[in-house]
Write a protein that binds this DNA or RNA. Structure first.
Length: 362
DNA sequence: TAGGCCATCTGGTCCT
DNA sequence: AGGACCAGATGGCCTA
């Protein structure tokens, strides 16, 4: 069984690796593959059923020829035994299903199914690749397809805004942008990514009220002071957890937080078509006390992908698109990144970010 | 148990 | 004819 599994998985992995991405999710796919085997077994059953259907369609054909031309000739004039009491149908006649034709049809269908499977696997691989470059990635808890696409769209839009505005957005508006149109769980997920980093900042680095310095996040991969009045506001429960982001659609008491002018994307822009997701709010249920709950731990499986801005190929750590323009930016602090077994650091990304980095470096 | 997500099968359509 | 693409149907798995 295992060898069968590997023999099936390996070609896929090799194919995907040849496509430019090294897939390391063979084990992850094992279940699916196994399932696939089961389904193939089922397919055998269905094929059997299909065959029996075909056989039933073949009722009355006793010539049993294997020749196509013969089939065609046959259908030109054949099958009229019962036409006496039935109105003649117009259009192309339904071909009589000979065993040979049924066999060919079956093989064709099997090949089509295999192609369709491959196509969908390729599509899923592309989606996996996309998951790796959007700002929240986990091997263990993957974003759904639709959420991946939405988040990717938001991410692109946010990056575009950064380029258009020429200034770094604050963390909250950035999260707002990313979470537009996302489901609440995904919103929490993205928020969790940020929360993780802000908590580290708060517990380890923050020494000055109202100053925001994130050590191990994309926001924080570089120690520069990041003023964020919101985080220092009464709404901010940073001392006990970090950003609390939640939709007020989940009940009263959740205060929407919007950046006070500037830096915030124009969600009404025609460029932005996402359905309006619940606004990103404070006061919500994401207030993780250090070491408090399992959700907190789960959030640790995620990393903000802006950490990718500090890739080895990126010129320097002053590539962070956040914080005050012109802020002094120090060295990278990848060593501050906690040892998440699941964390994705995007060292394999570079060119677009180098552009961005260069932009913010100037 | 309902709902969400997913993989797969299948038939239709379009294109080469 | 055959392949690519698509959408509907179906059933399994998982979670709240």
């Amino acid at each position: 069984m295992l060898s069968r599994l590997f023999s099936d998985v390996l070609p896929d992995v090799q194919r995907l690796a040849a496509g430019g991405w090294v897939e390391d999710s063979a084990s992850e796919d094992s279940k699916t593959k196994d399932d696939c085997h089961l389904r193939e077994d089922e397919m055998d059953d269905s094929e059997t059923r299909a065959s029996s259907r075909a056989d039933s369609e073949m009722a009355g054909d006793d010539d049993d020829d294997d020749d196509d031309s013969l089939d065609d000739d046959e259908e030109e004039g054949g099958g009229d035994e019962n036409d006496g009491d039935k109105p003649k149908k117009r259009g192309p006649k339904k071909r009589q299903m000979t065993p040979a034709r049924a066999e060919r049809s079956k093989v064709r269908r099997q090949k089509a199914n295999a192609r369709e499977r491959t196509r969908m696997h390729d599509l899923n691989s592309a989606l996996d690749n996309l998951r790796k470059v959007v700002p929240c990635y986990s091997k263990t808890q993957k974003l759904s397809k639709i959420e991946t696409l939405r988040l990717a769209k938001n991410y692109i839009w946010a990056l575009g805004e950064i380029l258009r505005n020429g200034k770094r957005p604050d963390v909250v508006s950035y999260v707002q942008t990313l979470c537009k149109g996302l489901s609440q769980p995904t919103t929490n997920l993205v928020a969790g990514c940020l929360q993780l980093n802000t908590r580290n900042f708060l517990t380890e680095q923050c020494t000055e009220p109202g100053r925001f310095h994130v050590p191990s996040s994309p926001f924080a991969a570089h120690p520069y002071p990041y003023p964020c009045s919101r985080l220092a506001s009464p709404h901010y429960q940073g001392g006990s957890g970090g950003l609390n982001i939640r939709s007020h659609a989940y009940g009263p008491g959740y205060e929407a937080v919007y950046p006070p002018g500037g830096g915030s994307p124009d969600y009404n822009s025609p460029d932005y078509e996402a359905p309006h997701s619940p606004p990103v709010c404070h006061n919500g249920g994401l207030s993780n006390r250090p070491g408090q709950d399992s959700d907190t731990d789960r959030n640790y499986h995620y990393s903000m992908h802006y950490s990718g801005l500090t890739t080895a190929r990126a010129p320097a750590p002053h590539n962070l698109p956040f914080g005050p323009p012109g802020a002094r930016i120090g060295g990278a602090h990848s060593e501050n990144i906690p040892p998440f077994h699941d964390v994705h650091t995007h060292h394999d990304r570079a060119p677009p970010y180098e552009d961005l980095n260069a932009f913010f470096h100037n």
